[in-house]
Every structure is written in structure tokens, then in C-alpha cells.
């Protein structure tokens, strides 16, 4: 029973991390039909620069961590906005080329990060409390899991409120459904493209800082390996659906934890099979609308 609770809660924690990457991917795909292979790079740079600044402010302190998170968000958002404005926008409506450009950016930035920070993972210092555990129903839950879950929940709430109660949120929701009709109402959707990139980049950058807390290190590859899981989550949840991304993040991560524990470390394999299964039964994902 203890083990089940532990796996469940750590699974939700890992899911929180997936969600921070998948939310942006899903919104970007939903609105722009671009599968963003550079999204992992947003995470990595957010994590690395967040760590660089945070440790100078206060290595292993709450102040340092909070600064890291803010820097990570800012860096992720900025990187994403530049990507959209400089590369994606010029290839308007040429989806294959847009995907290819993000592939190139992803590959190139990982190489650049390796050049700057090296190929090996760098161990990071944690806030003392985050190194401890809290006992829940007999299971000793690592404290950093609580941080991941609460931050991801805040991000989810913030995005939901933004989408529901602002004009840009309205435009984005409408655009995910039918972008052509949004332009045919006289609205310049390109501004909201930049905006979803900024939101997705900020969430990913924040995810980079939290990934460094979760794994206890930062590395030039962190984003790329996380990206594959985020893709799986996004597709299972339904491309374009934020709720779908949230649900699938948790489902996938929990499934992965349980399979790793009970089925001899087959977590990665199980979720890949789950993806294939979901796609064959419901090609649009759990919460997705009909794909165009």
C-alpha cells in the first residue's frame, strides 16, 4: 500500500513536469499546426540559465530557487518568441518547413549548449527542505514532488484563467478550433501565435528549473529527452487540448512509474505502446478534436 501511494504521488509529480512541457506544445500545435521540436531547447536553456543566475543569488536557498524559476520563465519565453518571430513566421502556413526549422533549431541548440556547459550533467544544490520527505499514509514522499505538483497546478490554473477571461484567450481558443474563420472575422491571429509561443516557452523554461530540482542536475540534453515524453503526452491527450495534456501527463507518468516498479523497468516501453494503442483506437487522442 505504501508503495502504491508513493508511486502514485511521485507519478503525479513527474506528470507535473511533463505537463509544463506538453501544455505549450499542445497549444502551439492546436493554434498553428506546428509540432515544435525546439521546445526541448526552451526547457534546457531555461534550466541552465535559471541555475546560473539562481546559484549566484543563493545556491541551495529558496531565494535562489525562486530567482531561478523567474529567470527560467523569462529565458524560455524570450527564446520562444525569437523562434516564432525570426523563424516560424516567415514560413507562414508551410507546416512541414516549420517543423523542419524547429528540428534544426533543436539540434543546433543542444550542440551549442554542449559547447558552453559540456556534455555531462552538472549536479545542482537543492533547498534543504526539498531534500527531505513527508510521510503520507505511511509512504515517504520526497518533498520536491510537492513543489512540482503545486507549481504545475498554478501554471494550469493561470493558463485556464487566461484562456477563459481575456480577449487573447478567446482568440486562441477560437483559433485552435478554426483559425481561418478567426482571420475572416478581421483578427490578426499572428499576434496570438507569438503569444502562445511565449506562454509555452515560459512554461517549458519553468519546467527546466523544476527538472533540475527533480533530477538533481542540469544538462544540455535534459530538454531533448523530456521532449519525447512530452510529445507522447501531447498526442495521447489530443493535440490542441490543454485539459487533454493535463490528464495525459498524469496518466502517462503514473503508468510509467508503476511499470518501472512492477514490470521490471519497462515504463518507457509501456507508454510507447500506450501511445500506439491510443492512436489506433482514437487517432485524435483522448480529448482531441478531429485532426485536419
Amino acid at each position: 500500500m505504501n508503495t502504491v501511494i508513493l508511486l502514485l504521488i511521485t507519478g503525479v509529480g513527474l506528470g507535473a513536469l511533463y505537463f509544463l512541457v506538453a501544455s505549450g506544445l499542445s497549444l502551439i500545435y492546436g493554434l498553428m499546426h506546428v509540432l515544435n521540436f525546439a521546445h526541448g531547447a526552451f526547457l534546457t536553456l531555461g534550466g541552465l540559465l535559471g541555475w546560473e543566475v539562481g546559484r549566484r543569488v543563493g545556491d541551495g536557498t529558496w531565494a535562489g530557487l525562486i530567482v531561478s524559476m523567474l529567470v527560467g520563465m523569462a529565458v524560455g519565453a524570450l527564446f520562444a518568441v525569437v523562434t516564432e518571430l525570426v523563424f516560424i513566421r516567415r514560413l507562414y502556413n508551410r507546416h512541414i518547413e516549420q517543423v523542419l526549422v524547429t528540428v534544426g533549431l533543436g539540434i543546433a541548440s543542444v550542440a551549442l549548449f554542449e559547447g558552453i556547459w559540456g556534455t555531462d550533467a552538472i549536479i545542482t544544490n537543492k533547498v534543504p527542505w526539498l531534500r527531505g520527505t513527508t510521510t503520507v499514509l505511511g509512504a515517504r514522499i520526497p518533498n520536491h514532488i510537492w513543489l512540482l505538483i503545486s507549481v504545475a497546478a498554478l501554471v494550469l490554473a493561470a493558463i485556464v484563467l487566461f484562456l477563459r477571461y481575456t480577449r487573447y484567450g478567446l482568440i486562441i481558443r477560437a483559433g485552435v478550433e478554426n483559425r481561418t474563420m478567426v482571420t475572416a472575422l478581421g483578427i490578426d491571429v499572428r499576434k496570438s501565435f507569438t503569444l502562445v509561443f511565449a506562454i509555452g516557452g515560459a512554461a517549458a523554461g519553468l519546467g527546466g528549473v523544476l527538472a533540475s530540482v527533480y533530477y538533481g542536475n542540469v544538462s544540455a540534453h535534459q530538454g531533448q529527452s523530456m521532449l519525447i515524453y512530452a510529445f507522447i503526452v501531447t498526442v495521447i491527450g489530443g493535440l490542441g487540448s490543454l485539459t487533454g495534456a493535463a490528464i495525459a501527463s498524469v496518466l502517462v507518468a503514473v503508468l510509467q512509474q508503476f511499470a518501472n516498479f512492477y514490470l521490471g523497468g519497462t515504463g518507457d516501453l509501456i507508454i510507447v505502446l500506450a501511445l500506439a494503442g491510443v492512436l489506433l483506437v482514437r487517432p485524435s487522442g483522448l480529448m482531441g478534436r478531429k485532426l485536419s
Binding site: R90, L91, E97, L100, V101, G104, L105, I107, G115
Partner: peptide, 16 residues
Amino acid sequence: SEPVFILGMVFVLVVM
């Protein structure tokens, strides 16, 4: 000194 960085950027320019 990162060949893959250069190749990646060349690729991006070619696509664009």
C-alpha cells in the same frame, strides 16, 4: 567548435 551546431544552422537557413 560544435559541428552539429553549424550543420543545424545551415539546415535551418536552407529550409528558409
